[in-house]
Design a protein around this nucleic acid. Structure first.
Lengths: 141, 141
DNA sequence: AATTATTAGTTGACACGTCAACTAATTTAG
DNA sequence: CTAAATTAGTTGACGTGTCAACTAATAATT
């Protein structure tokens, strides 16, 4: 493959990622969160109780950063932690009632935005997009 | 379109962006640059002389951040600035000989990595990827 | 022409992500 | 069983991106 194409693809993906993070920061900002923090909350809401090590396996984030995000989520009253019965070092994270509510509202705002953003994609275009992304995810990175 | 799909697409793009930035930071790190700084250098090498306002138009970056990146590139001796003949407030950025050399070497390293990363994509897959990305770039963001 | 509004670029405060170092718990090796 | 190695999570130093404030030049308005 011509590396011109690869560089263009890389640049497009980088740019798109940045734009989406900015947008996510704006939407989640109403709840004092940024996009990454919202993703952590989402994972906890959907998969909790969950320990940090598992969370790190689902995302691209340093454990130190996650530790700080979790600390913030706890201070905002969105998440609680309990010790893990399986491993004395680990803690299990769960969403609080407040956390679940904030997540639901914020997710609703994301959905509203998504209707605007991608609503003009045809079913075929969605299918192709998903297919391409699945393929890209397979590439060694 | 089902917003489940949109959210999945968003998450994939966010994750891919992060992974690519990390990878870029690693490759450009050999030259004391990160991915974003390398992109700025690339733009200057390829489009210089260019002012910062134009650069900002090509990227997703705050002018303040760009100012800091330019400052770093200058201190590394990769970029020089001259006043613009058209606008007394603006400065024109050009790559130095050293800057062009660093860019060429680093770009070579990116190409090498790209061969590993995307070399397994068929021509059709590349075509589809580019087509999908072109479409995504049209979406309001 | 003078005044007001806008803009190119800079700087500082601050949030946040990475890396390194650390503590305490667990796992592995002898 | 004991010692060494590894690991879950925390904390601090530091680089970097955003936002706000600022200066000086330019553009627009009166």
């Amino acid at each position: 493959m011509a590396t011109e194409n690869a560089w263009d693809i890389v640049k497009d993906l980088l740019r798109m990622g940045s734009a989406l993070y900015r947008n996510g920061d704006r939407i989640a900002g109403a709840y004092e969160l940024n996009q990454q923090q919202f993703i952590v909350l989402s994972e906890i809401v959907n998969s909790g109780p969950i320990n940090q090590k598992q969370l790190i396996g689902e995302m691209i984030i340093e454990k130190s950063s996650l530790s700080k995000i979790v600390k913030k989520l706890k201070s905002l009253g969105l998440v609680t932690s309990t010790s893990s019965p399986d491993d004395g070092r680990a803690i299990l994270l769960s969403a609080t009632q407040k956390g679940a509510t904030v997540w639901k509202e914020c997710m609703g705002n994301f959905h509203d935005w998504q209707v605007d953003w991608a609503g003009s994609l045809t079913k075929e275009e969605v299918r192709q997009t998903i297919k391409v992304l699945e393929r890209l995810k397979e590439l060694p990175l």
